[in-house]
Design a protein around this nucleic acid. Sequence first.
DNA 1: CTGAAAGCGCTTACAG
DNA 2: CTGAAAGCGCTTACAG
Lengths: 353, 353
Amino acid sequence: MNKISQLSVNGFAVRKSELNKSHQVVTLEMVATKAGVSPSTVSRILNGTAVVSADKKKAVEEAISTLGFIPNPIARGLAGGKTLSVGVVTQAIDSPFYGVALRGIEAELDLAGYSALFVSGHWDAKTESKCVDVLLSRRVDGIIVLTGRLTNATLKSCAKRVPIVVTGRSLKAPQLYSLHFDNVEGGRLATQHLVSLGHRRIAHISGSLNHPDAADRLLGYREALVSAGIGFDAELVVSGDFSEASGLLAARQLLEKKCDFSAIFAANDQMALGAALALHQRGLRIPGDVSLVGFDDLPAATYAWPPLTSVHESAYELGRLAALSMLQLLQGIRPGSVLPGPRLIQRDSTAAI
Amino acid sequence: MNKISQLSVNGFAVRKSELNKSHQVVTLEMVATKAGVSPSTVSRILNGTAVVSADKKKAVEEAISTLGFIPNPIARGLAGGKTLSVGVVTQAIDSPFYGVALRGIEAELDLAGYSALFVSGHWDAKTESKCVDVLLSRRVDGIIVLTGRLTNATLKSCAKRVPIVVTGRSLKAPQLYSLHFDNVEGGRLATQHLVSLGHRRIAHISGSLNHPDAADRLLGYREALVSAGIGFDAELVVSGDFSEASGLLAARQLLEKKCDFSAIFAANDQMALGAALALHQRGLRIPGDVSLVGFDDLPAATYAWPPLTSVHESAYELGRLAALSMLQLLQGIRPGSVLPGPRLIQRDSTAAI
DNA sequence: CTGAAAGCGCTTACAG
DNA sequence: CTGAAAGCGCTTACAG
């Protein structure tokens, strides 16, 4: 450092450029100087990475608090390869379902001093791959992938570079943990509920069938039907894409087909809401003329008219447990969390036939 | 570097520890070596920070693409003080309104190669302050604050450290740009619509009144009433907190007061949805017995029953323009974007008295 | 238990 | 137009 360009603030040498910052940044070196130890020692205390004598520890801790030192995660990341941040590949930052999951992730990570980096994959494997690259270039310590369309092989190979937690599938690999919700059981629950109410002609609005959740819910629907001795009728199944608009369209198709149904099980609440609108528009009453069951139990389900019976899946828990598992992976602990099972929440959109 | 601990991969010296990474990381230095120039030159080409001879430029660009070099934002951040990331203080990561704004921010930032760091302030000044600190410690290049409760003074002082874009208020300061939606006009529009339909007893469910948006919408309501010669009746105003649950409660209060109204203007769609439920539960028809207007025009408004008349406020544009303005601030350009004005979207929840 | 030194991957005056 | 060198704020072998 050129002596001529040096100044001093609080007894510390300061480069001119730093003076432009209104807040003088406190560095680890300043802490070390103030505490009369080496930077190495400060670092070790900070990270608990070695035993340090009690008196030095005390001196350092005092220096840290009087100086108000906050370690720079950027520098930490460069030097130690850790950034205390975890990347999250969500599919749409404004999804009502995943939004709640993000809140769960945020809450859990925050407890551990980690930050989340959210990027949206938009249900497109290419985009999701790009998201992973962005996250990797930002040197996140781990990546949480909320479902999406990345192949298992891709995920496993990512896990060789960085710990991965993925939702929406069951996968085993080193440094990879998956959290899976039992969608088959959920689909079964929804359908059984309708069956128990006396419905025999139960239509299903499925999600995009290349989406495992959609396929599983359909499977549960089918199984419940068969085991009730009703049998599966392909005529009664129309597929949507999990959006409200697609639910509306699907319900209209069902109506036009005249396939004579008394109930609809929609593979998510958003489609159920769309279907409800189609039904209302045709002058059909819910549940008087047709019973309706959704899936996810979004907050909106409670405020729909009539309030929607739905299969509860806790997005918040999903997010929280994904984050918790990631934190465990990062600490070298084998995660073991499992998602709570589906529960049927009965409201007013279903009734006996 | 100790020669003994050195290895070689693709002709480049590599530390042992790096071999553990499955993917050999390509550094700027490797690019320089391959192109036969100095690292400085590569950096300058990358940043367009100086004129470089055409041939070297070509060589470097070739090296970059054959090596698949991706600059490390972390190192960039440390060295240059830039991280190509902007922090976003949102209030709740799962808010249906702000969620859409986040999508707009993400889209715009992505175009410029920037990443967003989202943190939630939960409408609490203390928490929001903490969010700003976290963001600062991550060395974001700028911060976008979505409304919230930080004081103007706090915001202005933040702007001394880092460029700030804030929504939901009008503020002028160096390195600070604010984007403001005309909530007064929006409230006026909603109310005028009801007035034009012949309603005279128009109730209002306001948001939390310590929230400027809520106060402004109430003001617009009041102004419209007065200028229509109807006059303001405090009896007809009940306040909620922008949540569905509060809308439900507010509508019930209104009903119990027996204040005799034929229409309700709710300060946002979420409360309107809650109010609709309360109305339905009392057996009141919308709009037959009471007309209902919301605010924001969330996607959910379209799928409510009946589809909700609402004041459109484009959350997506809000986010997009906030991000655009930030990018301009970062380039030293004075931002000038303004939000589109409110528009009334008429659906089926309002009718002539 | 602790310090000096090198290094993480870049950027940016400085000096041609 | 371009390179050598120092530095960003930490961490981590290495050597006591």
